[in-house]
Amino acid sequence: MKIVIIIPTLNGIGHLKENKQIYYSNLIFIDSQSNDGTQRLIKDYTHKIIEKSEFNHGGTRNLGARMATEDGADILVFMTQDAIPTDETWLEKLVAPIRSGEAAATFARQLPRRGASLLEQFSRHFNYPGVSRVRSEADIPQLGVKAFFFSNVCSAVRADVFWELGGFPEDVIMNEDMTLAAKLLRAGYKVKYVAEAEVVHSHDYSLKQQFRRNFDVGAFFAEAGPELRGASVTGEGLRFVREQIAYVRRHGHADLIPLVITEAAAKFSAFQLGKRHHLLPLGIKKKLSMHSYHWDQKEQGTL
């Protein structure tokens, strides 16, 4: 089965030079007008340059997927430019469940970067445990929104199934990967979290960045399609906060509890505001959003 890795890029030269484990593979880069040397690095590989204003989380990846499929890909692997595999076996482990027929899509474990804050270390630990799991539609009542958890930081999908389901949605502000996972489960396919396939990837967002990101999460859920019915996030958010408080205590940093609570309040208020984004004028939405270009694209009718 032919595997093609698709990586959107924007001024990612530092991470791409660090990533030694991807260059032995079939690669497609979709670059959004980088000016830091990224385009020189990718010129020897299949690539396409798009206007920065054209970038779209779902649409840009669909463009790469079309190029990969035209090149005969059987398995589409999606990565971000800052995901660094921990060893040379990551790809084999990631696609093994697809090759065996165990699942139609998989995603990898994410480990925190060296020097990541304790709160970010917990986030990786909470969302990416050390035990693999296969999910099916039958798991939705028990897991709720967690059943749809899926990450394009490092994921793989059978190409024929990907296109059968219409690829990634191109009209969402983010979480195109979650929407695809929901479509897969609703269509009777299985998704596997592969803890043995590991990449280093984490972000220490500021409080402002956390707010803006969760505003976009709220906006996404406000417009999510029927595939995500039953995907309540409230219970999962409360569990995250409870376990994060316990985590910092275990690590001798009860002094971080006020920050945990402050972050939780910022995320919750931003999420609720994002869910009601239709009440806000365009200019305010752009200021509150991490992905402000989405609102321009929506206003211009390009979504």
Rank of each mutant, 00 (worst) to 15 (best):
M1G: 14
I3C: 15
T9R: 03
Y24E: 11
I30N: 02
I30G: 05
S32D: 06
S32H: 06
T38E: 00
F55K: 08
G59E: 11
T60V: 10
N62C: 09
G64V: 05
M67W: 13
G72I: 10
G72S: 08
F78D: 02
M79H: 08
Q81C: 13
L91E: 05
V95W: 06
V95Q: 10
V95D: 11
A103R: 02
A104Q: 15
F107Y: 14
A108D: 11
Q110V: 05
P112V: 03
R113C: 02
A116N: 05
L119W: 05
E120F: 09
Y128S: 09
K146L: 12
F149T: 13
V153P: 10
V153A: 11
V157A: 06
R158V: 07
F162P: 01
P169T: 04
V172F: 04
M174A: 14
N175M: 12
T179L: 09
A182R: 00
L185M: 04
K190M: 12
V191D: 00
V191A: 03
K192G: 05
Y193S: 15
H201M: 15
H201N: 14
D204I: 02
Y205L: 11
S206E: 07
L207D: 15
Q210S: 12
F211Y: 10
R212W: 01
E223Q: 15
L228Q: 00
E243M: 08
A246H: 12
G252H: 07
G252L: 06
G252A: 03
H253L: 01
D255L: 05
V260Y: 01
R276V: 00
H278A: 15
H278P: 04
K286L: 01
H291E: 12
H291Q: 12
W295I: 06
E299C: 04
G301Y: 06
L303R: 03
L303W: 09
